[in-house]
């Protein structure tokens, strides 16, 4: 029918893009998210200085307010500097990179665990289902941040001290990933239970395909669209969880500060008048989490035909 149209033209003509164009909030969120992601990826090019390079730091530059020349060195910083003379804008850009990296990989981990367990529970049913879903039920009765702290604490205890800082980011990812898998598992289980009764699954069983092949090749592609929505919303949660953990001091190490670490540092100076050290990382985190969340909400509404 529209064979001569390119994929891009079809996308521009789709309901999906039409919905997107009609929602200014979504467009703004999308622009913010894309800008922040690009900044994080291109941090080396975008950031004025490298905040992790101790050689470029000058302690005399400490506590420079935004847009004002430093009293000693005369240098000016767009967003000011922190106590060690680190340019805040650069620190935020690099912190964004850590936050986004941890958030994204944690969501991918949570998605992998949740989708696998959900598929298994939904397809097998019986006691497999009962065991997996009861574990999920127990887990949601704890706040996920508590679970993350618990996993983080256990992992730190098990790791040799010299590896702790090196593996802190990995541990953080595992902790957040393990604490956010439940919504994925529940949704996928529900859709799987519907899909497995459909006749195309019977047809696959008829030619003698095994359960794992049916789950992965036939059912999985049909349960993924709600997963996309949950992944987006969970991304916002994971970024906030990372910031919370880092704020509590159990997350990203000071050598690799994330937005949460920057907020924790800034909070020490809030009442002594250096407001900018706290404010700018916090606003960045807020903008990122809010935009991702709004995008997720829009995606959920758009992909759910019953809400139209």
């Amino acid at each position: 029918m529209n064979g001569e149209k390119s994929a891009w033209q079809r996308f521009l003509a789709s309901d999906f893009f039409y919905d997107f164009k009609r929602s200014p909030v979504t467009i703004v969120s999308f622009v913010i998210v894309v800008t922040l992601i690009l900044m994080a990826i291109l941090a080396d090019l975008v950031a004025p200085t490298n905040p992790f390079d101790p050689g470029s730091l000058n302690l005399m530059n400490g506590f420079t307010p935004p847009m004002e020349p430093n009293a000693f060195t005369g240098e000016t910083f767009l967003l000011g500097t922190d106590d060690q003379g680190r340019d805040l804008l650069s620190a935020i850009i690099y912190g964004l990179r850590v936050s986004l990296f941890v958030g994204l990989t944690a969501v991918i981990l949570a998605m992998f665990i949740g989708v696998s367990l959900g598929l298994l529970a939904g397809y097998r049913g019986g006691w497999v289902d009962a065991v997996i879903m009861r574990i999920a039920d127990i887990q949601v009765t704890f706040p996920s941040i508590l679970i993350a702290v618990l996993i983080f604490g256990v992992a730190r205890g098990l790791l040799p001290p010299d590896l702790r800082d090196e593996l802190a980011i990995t541990v953080l990812i595992v902790a957040i990933g393990l604490s956010e898998w439940v919504p994925f598992a529940r949704t996928v289980r529900g859709t799987t239970m519907v899909e497995k009764e459909k006749e195309y699954v019977q047809a696959a069983r008829l030619i003698g395909l095994g359960s794992s092949q049916i789950m992965v090749r036939h059912i999985l592609p049909n349960v993924l669209s709600p997963v996309l929505v949950i992944a987006t919303i969970t991304l916002a949660l994971a970024i906030i969880a990372e910031a919370t953990l880092s704020f509590l001091g159990v997350g990203a190490p000071p050598t690799e500060p994330s937005l949460g670490t920057l907020i924790r540092i800034g909070q020490d100076f809030l009442f002594s008048g250096e407001w900018w050290i706290l404010l700018f990382p916090a606003v960045t985190l807020l903008a990122l989490a809010l935009s991702v969340n709004l995008l997720g909400d829009w995606l959920r509404d758009t992909l759910n035909p019953r809400l139209k």
Partner: peptide, 28 residues
């Protein structure tokens, strides 16, 4: 099993919506 096959009731549920017809037929 290879000698036994089935045609199902619902033409809407019996074909995997994410697969191209070619792949559906090639699977057996």
């Amino acid at each position: 099993r290879q000698r036994l096959q089935m045609v199902f009731q619902s033409p809407y549920a019996s074909l995997n919506p994410r697969w191209r017809v070619g792949s559906i037929l090639a699977e057996p």
